Simulated scan of single mutants.
Amino acid sequence: MGRGHDHEPGQHGHSHGPALTKDTPPEERRSKERAIAIAAVLTGGFMGAEVVGGLVSGSLALLADAGHMLTDFASLVLAWLAFRLARRPADWKRTYGFDRFSVLAAFVNGLALFAIAAWISVEALQRLRDPSEVLGGLMLWVAVGGLAVNILAFWVLSRAEGDNLNVRAAALHVMGDLLGSFAAIVASLVIIWTGWTPIDPILSVLVALLILRSAWAVIRESGHILLEGAPPGFDARTVAADLEAALPGVARVQHVHAWSITQERPMATLEVELTAGADADDVRRAVKDRVRETTGMAHVTVEVVGSADG
Rank of each mutant, 00 (worst) to 15 (best):
H5N: 08
D6K: 03
E8V: 08
G10N: 10
G10M: 12
Q11D: 13
G13F: 06
H14T: 05
S15Q: 09
P18N: 08
L20E: 12
T24P: 02
S31H: 06
S31F: 10
A37N: 01
A37T: 08
T43H: 05
G45V: 14
V51G: 04
G53T: 12
L55Q: 10
S57Y: 03
G58Q: 09
A66W: 01
L70V: 05
T71L: 05
T71S: 07
D72T: 10
A74Y: 04
V77T: 00
W80D: 01
A82G: 11
R84E: 09
A90P: 04
R94I: 13
T95P: 01
D99F: 00
L111T: 08
F114L: 13
A117H: 05
A124K: 00
L125K: 02
D130M: 10
G137F: 09
M139W: 11
L140Q: 08
W141I: 15
L152F: 11
F154Y: 14
W155I: 13
S158T: 15
A169T: 00
L172R: 06
L172A: 08
G176I: 04
G176A: 12
A183L: 04
A184C: 12
A187W: 09
D200C: 14
V207S: 07
A208M: 08
A215G: 08
I225R: 00
L226C: 04
A230R: 05
P231I: 15
P231T: 15
P232F: 15
G233T: 14
A241K: 11
A241F: 11
P248M: 05
R252N: 11
Q254V: 14
H255S: 13
A258W: 03
A258L: 14
S260H: 04
E264S: 15
R265I: 15
L270S: 04
L270A: 07
L270P: 02
D282C: 07
V283K: 01
R284H: 13
V287M: 01
D289G: 11
E293W: 10
T295I: 09
G296E: 12
V302N: 01
V305N: 00
A308T: 11
A308Q: 09
D309G: 03
D309C: 05
G310R: 07
